[in-house]
Amino acid sequence: MGTWGIGGYERPDYSYDRESVEALRYGLELGINLIDTAEFYGAGHSEELVGEAIRGFERGEIFIISKVWPSHFSYNEAKNAARASAKRLGTYIDLYLLHWPGEDWGKIEETLHALEELVDEGLIRYIGVSNFDLELLKRSQEAMRRHEIVANEVKYSLKDRWPETSGLLDYMKREKIALIAYTPLEKGSLARNSCLGEIGKKYGKTSAQVALNYLIWEENVIAIPKAGRREHVEENAGAMGWRLLREDREKARGCV
């Protein structure tokens, strides 16, 4: 479940807090156990809502992702940012990502090393990156001293298949790195795609469910559609537990 816009965008928005928390909790009840957030989302309010939503659930069965913004790249600032995120969440962070590459490689490397220490301290469990191209991903892997890069969160959908065409997806499969796909429904446009709907009829699925299943068809790909409303969360959950036939997956590419 993605949370960009939940709790605000670049500043806090408290208008839909109750609805957002209910949607996240409903997703957990349906078995969607991964929640993606970031310190940048709603200036931290998104993390607060995630922390509220997970109360009462078994923590070990939930996987929480958060991210450090480039303005906090550096040894001390990255550590402080992670501690602040964990405080807002009220728990440790399963996967902590560098949100964007930034322009200073020295600060990226310094931040990665700080995160390795946070793993050793138990504040975070795994380290990843976000919006890194193939070259930067490889460079980040080489910079690691004691731990590995386990994920790269990038924009990926049926409409925007650059991870496939750039070789990034194939490389990440070989390296056993998870690809976390954000904007997987292209802000709802794929959910309204009639061609995908025709494919979905064969499986009793909607256009959105076909678009999401196309992505998670690959074993190392995780899609994180926004979890703002209960009905959308329920529809997203229906993308799991089945698999497009290879020929229908090929057809889906021709729908956009």
Rank of each mutant, 00 (worst) to 15 (best):
P225C: 09
D104W: 06
A211G: 07
E250G: 07
A252K: 01
S74C: 13
T206H: 00
E219D: 15
E148G: 10
R139P: 02
I108W: 02
T111E: 02
N76H: 10
K176I: 00
D13E: 02
K138A: 12
Y203P: 01
I108E: 04
Y214R: 00
K202E: 03
S66C: 06
R88E: 11
R174M: 10
K173S: 05
L89V: 06
I180G: 03
K187H: 13
K138H: 07
L118Q: 02
A86L: 15
N193D: 06
F57H: 04
G197I: 03
G90T: 12
L136S: 15
V233D: 01
K205G: 00
L34D: 08
A38F: 12
T183G: 14
L49Y: 06
E148R: 14
L118H: 11
R146T: 08
S74V: 14
W105C: 03
G56A: 05
A23V: 08
L95A: 11
E109C: 07
V50G: 07
I127W: 06
L89N: 13
Y14C: 00
R229E: 10
V68A: 03
Y75F: 14
R88P: 09
W69K: 01
F73V: 12
L190I: 03
H147W: 12
K201F: 05
Y182M: 14
I108M: 07
D36Y: 13
V150F: 01
E48P: 13
R18P: 01
K176Q: 11
E121N: 12
F57I: 06
R249E: 01
S140T: 04
K201Y: 11
Y96F: 09
L215C: 12
G228L: 06
H45N: 10
E153M: 15
P12F: 08
S189Q: 12
Y171P: 02
G31C: 09
K187G: 13
H45S: 01
H147K: 10
E148M: 08
V119L: 05
F57E: 05
N131F: 00
R146P: 08
E58T: 15
S20V: 03
V221E: 14
Y92C: 08
L169E: 04
F73C: 09
A84P: 06
I180L: 13
R18N: 11
V210C: 04
Y171D: 02
Y14P: 15
L95C: 08
R83G: 07
E231F: 12
T3C: 03
D120P: 05
L97R: 02
H232Y: 14
I62L: 15
A252M: 06
Y214P: 10
Y16N: 11
R83T: 06
S71P: 09
K138R: 12
R229P: 14
